[in-house]
């Protein structure tokens, strides 16, 4: 997917691309995702041209790591923890409730563009299980009811 982003945005990447050294592809991709929110094809092509790394290799790296997204996301990104402690404490049921409310599958954007939810391996807040993050905020000890309340706040 392309973003057809303005040139201005691409300029934000320039200082990082200029300092490219062998091995620094991952930090550049992380920076690009920070700027755009996701990694559009045209941005990846731009990175390939500027660094001389083959596009196939870039796609290989992007598809390997879970952090990288090749599709845009909603305004608020929900990271629903599916770690062991959360699983034991009922994260599957929490996911079902979220899916019902948002009416979208994992990775999709809600109709109003407000949310995307992704399952993640472990947020490391196991004592708060089941837990999720929205943006930088962590919510713990989720129940069917509290999830509804939290989503209504946004």
């Amino acid at each position: 997917m392309n973003c057809n982003c303005a040139e201005k945005l691409k300029q934000k990447l320039e200082p990082f691309l200029k300092n490219y050294t062998e091995g620094s592809l991952i930090p550049i991709l992380q920076k690009a995702q920070e700027v755009y929110g996701w990694l559009p094809d045209d941005v990846l092509e731009h990175i390939a041209r500027k660094t001389g790394v083959k596009p196939a290799k870039i796609i290989g790296v992007v598809s390997f790591y879970t952090q990288f997204r090749t599709k845009p996301v909603g305004k608020n990104l929900i990271l629903l923890c599916q770690g062991t402690a959360c699983h034991v404490n009922g994260s599957a049921e929490i996911e079902r409730v979220i899916r019902d409310i948002l009416k979208t599958e994992e990775g999709g954007i809600t109709e109003d563009g407000k949310f995307t939810y992704n399952n993640v391996a472990c947020l490391g807040c196991c004592s708060l299980a089941p837990a999720m993050m929205i943006g930088a905020r962590t919510f713990g000890k989720l129940t069917r009811e509290s999830v509804v309340e939290i989503l209504n706040e946004y």
Binding site: G83, T84, A85, A121, C122, G124, C125, C126
Partner: peptide, 10 residues
């Protein structure tokens, strides 16, 4: 630290 259910290192 990638083990789900572990946060000692964090």
């Amino acid at each position: 630290e990638g083990d789900p259910g572990a946060f000692m290192d964090r």
